[in-house]
Amino acid sequence: MLEVRDLSASYGAVKALDGVSFDAADGQITAVLGANGAGKTTLLRTLSGLVRPTAGSARLGSTDLLRTPVEEMTRTGLAHVPEGRGVITELTVEENLRLGALGAPSGGERRFDVDRVTELFPVLGQRRHQVADTLSGGERQMLVIGRALLAEPRILLLDEPSLGLAPRVVAQIFALLRDLVSSTGLSVLLVEQNARSALGIADVGIVLNLGRLVVQQAADTLVDDDQLRHAYLGF
C-alpha cells in the first residue's frame, strides 16, 4: 500500500506539487490524470527520489520513501519507468533485462526471470541479443516494463507508457498490465495523457490540476462524470 500525504515539491518558485494526498492499494491500477504541467511526472519523480519534496510524506508499506535514496528504491519494491521509456539503447535487450534483475530486493521470492518476461513479451525473446537501439517504440515500452518487473516491484510507476505508440500497441500493453496486476497483486501508478485508455484498465483515477489533487474516484465513476471529464480530461 502506497500512502501519500500532503506531498509538495517545487522547481524554484514554481510549485509543481501542492499538498497531494492519496492511497494506492495493492493489486490495483491507479491512473494519474491531468493536463500537461499538472504535476503528474513530478509526482512520480518525487516518489522515486529524483525530485526532493518540500513537505509531506510518502510510505510504501513500512518504508519511508522520502528518506530512501534513488539507488535504493528498487530494493524497497518501487520500480519507476520514466517518461521517454528509459531504454539503455547501447545495451542489448538481454543486458537491459539483466540490469533490471540486478536491482531486485535480495532474498525474497522471485516471480519474474528473463524467461518469464520473454514469455510475456515474445518479441523481446526474438530480439534478445539485439542492441536495444534497434527496437521499435512499442518494443521499447515492453522492454522497460519487462525490465521493471525483473526488479520484483510491489509498486510500478509508469510515466506515459502510451506516448507515441499506435493505439493497437497501447491496447496490447494495457491489457497485459491488467492481467499482470490481477495475477500478481502488483500495484501500478499509471501516469497518462490518454485518460480514456488509462481509465479503461484502472481501478481508481486521481486527477491533478496545477499541482493539486482535485478528484479521487473509482475509474468507472470518473468515466461517467461528464462534467469532470470535460473540465480536466478533455474527452
Binding site: 522515486s48 529524483l50 534513488v70 539507488e71 535504493e72 528504491m73 528498487t74 530494493r75 520500480a79 519507476h80 520514466p82 528509459g86 539503455i88 539503447t89 547501447e90 545495451l91 543486458e95 540490469l99 533490471g100 540486478l102 536491482g103 525490465r147 526488479a151
Partner: peptide, 14 residues
C-alpha cells in the same frame, strides 16, 4: 556501462 550511458536510468534501476 549502464552508468556511463544513462546515469539517471541506471540509478532508477538500483
Amino acid at each position: 556501462r549502464a552508468s556511463a550511458h544513462s546515469p539517471e536510468v541506471a540509478r532508477l534501476l538500483g
